[in-house]
Design a binder for these strands. Structure first.
Lengths: 194, 194, 194, 194
DNA sequence: AATGAATGAGAGTTCATTCAT
DNA sequence: AATGAATGAACTCTCATTCAT
């Protein structure tokens, strides 16, 4: 009753402001105002600006990585899993456009502790993908590529979408399809080689 | 005499400090001190901190893109050009490790104008790569992939190196080789298909 | 039932915290927590932090002066009374070390009203001592010194103990003895004078 | 020329405000305003509020102890030296009334470092007085009192003046005379003893 | 009567920018 | 042209006090 989600409101407001302004330019005053609480109230829920940022980032990234992880879990070929990962990724970035910025900015500002946590999360993600690539090679679906580099390439290729400006007639779906096509088939023309 | 490269020294000092501290935490005082000039002097050459940052970023990125552009110019197959691009990229990042951060951080801090300029530069780069991919398809070296997405993938795959933690026995050269192998050959096992 | 000495507990907690932290650094939150009551409850018993401090100081000084006053009341020579005063004073400072700080610090913080009260208390104390000195002179125990200055000197000589660092073999008892010896006998060598 | 004693002005303003308000209540804003400089300017000369306070206290106490030390140096009997010390002390407190407060307040606020320094200064002062007492005993001017306690008593007896409210007809000179009389002759009536 | 969540005034401090020299 | 002393706006954070429950 007394709770009325004030912590959550501050967290959301903080994400808004941090994304709009970046860590250093975001002010506690504006965050509080956006959350509709007094300036001092933010300090009732978070001991400092840095701690608030930490929680915002964790919340954001945990959601992001959990979603991707879920997408590649379960049954299916490597191909199918990659399609699912791309689709989920695109969904997130279409509905939660803020994550794009969250992932691009303020990496230098975040605390050592958070940096470590973030790298761990990313490595865990790559580990999961590496396993999938490994299994794909064993099953004969994939050729003998370097599993970890393939996994790393897969994960980071998601980022292409951040920068690719869709031209007339192009859609996110087509972009995805083309990206996956290149990742799986490569760009080399093998026809003549046979 | 009065020229004595003072502007250049400020620019270099600013790059040092901006990279070390990030935009907001960098101070004009430290930049001036590093450049060996008075604090007021920086304002003789650059009207504001933001303008200085703008020039620093332009200088940095111009160098970066020029080098990549040179690497993929001239004769050779697409494969050879990609190898040259990777090599040049790695050289830059090995000797000028600061660029990594320059490219990863402070994107939110830069002015609208600079953002636009940066995207233009990147698009120009992608255009150049797209042309190369296009020619590669024409010549039969590459299969009929989406030229622009292939170009975009090529460019962004360079970033994998930022995050990939080299394990025992792995080298940047091996990493490059494996990345190019995946990009050209894809991950799919075609053996069974013939 | 509702009484349950809550006021007393707050008062004691406040003394603890004020002595430990000084007026400005003491917080109502910590006082309330130490007293085992809610923060708002302190305001049920004391209208403000300053009022609470006022009451704490009065309580402390009243105790202090009452004890000293009792020590010098009753029968005995001036010498015996001074010994009793010193002994009581040392007892207090040994068991209630906090008083030392209470008397040394935060004089600037206290309200005008309290300052006046404090001076009154001290003057009352000196009046009492002055009477004793006066009687001592009348009885022939003391020579014709200035009664009020002697009284003042007596009272303030108690403070020496605050600053005197006991060396090896020295005790509070010895210090007392030596102080009283000087106060009564003076430092001048009278032997040759006779 | 550019100096124009701004540092000194800040130091003086700080002493004023610290004495008027105490350490915690004194604000840098008011100090700056009193000094007639901008708020930021104080930080050009002193790195922090605490550092400023430190310098203010050192300046004040150094002056105080130097004056007392000078007063008791040179030729003369112990009696004459004590008279000189009292006279100098009274002069200071009559012309620089602020020192009185400087010495009574904020002992709890001062940094560990400054506390140590202050105790050192006081001990040095007592050492000097102890030597004088010692010589006085050797020369036969004084009887065999405890030299260190006598020295300590001498120094602290100066404080009586802070609290003694002069009555009609009483003067600082008379007060001094009476104090010294008691210190040298004691309060005991020796007449009957012979 | 008792509470603690909520608040905002105000603290110390930083630093881009100005400007007299 | 070159400087750095001077500045004040704006930052994070604290805490006495209020008030709905």
């Amino acid at each position: 009753m007394s709770k009325d989600g004030k912590r959550e409101r501050i967290l959301n407001a903080a994400m808004d402001i941090f994304l709009k302004e970046g860590y250093d330019r975001a002010t506690m005053k504006e965050i509080a105002k956006t959350a509709g609480v007094g300036k001092g109230t933010t300090y009732e829920y978070f001991p400092s600006k840095e701690a608030l940022f930490y929680d915002v980032m964790q919340k954001g990234f945990r959601y992001f990585f959990t979603e991707l992880s879920n997408a590649i879990s379960g049954e299916g070929t490597v191909y199918e899993k990659m399609v699912r990962m791309y689709e989920r990724h695109h969904q997130i970035f279409r509905t939660e456009t803020r994550f794009r910025d969250l992932m691009m900015n303020d990496f230098g500002k975040i605390s050592e502790e958070l940096q470590v946590w973030l790298i761990e999360q990313e490595q865990a993600m790559i580990n999961q993908l590496e396993e999938i690539v490994h299994d794909g090679i064993e099953s004969g679906e994939l050729r003998h590529v370097h599993p970890r580099i393939a996994a790393s390439t897969m994960l980071h290729s998601l980022r292409v979408v951040y920068f690719y400006p869709l031209k007339d007639g192009e859609t996110l779906e087509k972009l995805t399809e083309a990206q996956i096509d290149i990742f799986f088939g490569g760009v080399r023309n093998n026809v003549n080689r046979i």
